[in-house]
């Protein structure tokens, strides 16, 4: 029997897909902001002189790097509400899971970036009478940021891909909507192919930018 291709129903329901795309972007933006800033705090915390800060930071990084994101999301969605007196919706649970995971990975990126700056730069700053903070701010960090851009951009791409996990706790992001359409119109091939292409078209240029940054500034993670 000849397969009847049906792209039309997808086009007809583009507004459903649009809702999904919006959902994906919402997760992406919020997660990146929270995850990358939290990662900076944790990264700094790992340098702290007080082991009461260093230890929790290290444990945080190890735990969230070495457990699957999906279990974290599910834990936040099903388990956490039992411990806290308020509701946790799918968006919040997904953002928490992905953001904490991102924070753990970016903490190491920040650390690696700072450590990769030649020790002599510290000498140069201190020798002209700059304090630790002044040297960090004016000499080390401006140079480290360039090194950190490729792996941080990579993290952003990963966040974008991980946003699909939110569909599992029924958040209306792109793949969730595509599944909805495919179940209503019985055209999984078209629905999922379109979504795959959508993701590819959005992410591929960013991946290329990452390669460019890598070439200019050094290794990604």
């Amino acid at each position: 029997m000849e397969y009847q291709w049906d792209f039309l129903s997808i086009v007809d329901n583009w507004n459903l897909l649009a809702i999904g795309l919006l959902g994906t972007f919402k997760i992406f933006i919020v997660t990146c902001v929270i995850g990358l800033s939290l990662g900076l705090l944790v990264g700094i915390g790992r340098y702290s002189r007080a082991w009461s800060i260093r230890l929790p930071a290290a444990v945080f990084v190890e735990f969230f790097r070495n457990t699957p994101v999906l279990i974290q999301i599910i834990w936040f969605y099903f388990a956490l509400p039992i411990l806290v007196p308020f509701e946790i919706n799918a968006f919040t649970a997904s953002v928490m899971g992905i953001a904490l995971n991102t924070a753990a990975f970016s903490a190491d990126i920040y650390r690696g970036g700072i450590q990769s700056i030649d020790r002599g730069q510290w000498d140069g700053g201190r020798a002209i009478g700059m304090s630790y903070l002044q040297t960090m701010r004016r000499v080390i960090i401006p140079q480290a940021i360039k090194r950190m851009l490729p792996p941080l951009t990579n993290r952003g791409i990963e966040v974008f891909k991980m946003s699909t996990l939110a569909s599992i706790v029924a958040y209306a992001e792109t793949i969730h909507q595509a599944k909805l359409i495919s179940e209503s119109y019985f055209n999984p091939i078209e629905s999922f192919s379109v979504v795959a292409l959508l993701f590819f078209v959005v992410l591929f240029p960013i991946v290329q930018v990452t390669y460019l940054l890598e070439r200019r500034f050094g290794k990604s993670d």
């Binding site: 891909k161 991980m162 699909t164 999984p188 091939i189 999922f192 992410l203």
Partner: peptide, 13 residues
Amino acid sequence: TTPPLVQLFWFFF
């Protein structure tokens, strides 16, 4: 570049 979940759904459905 494409998310694994999208790939999985494509292969399965």
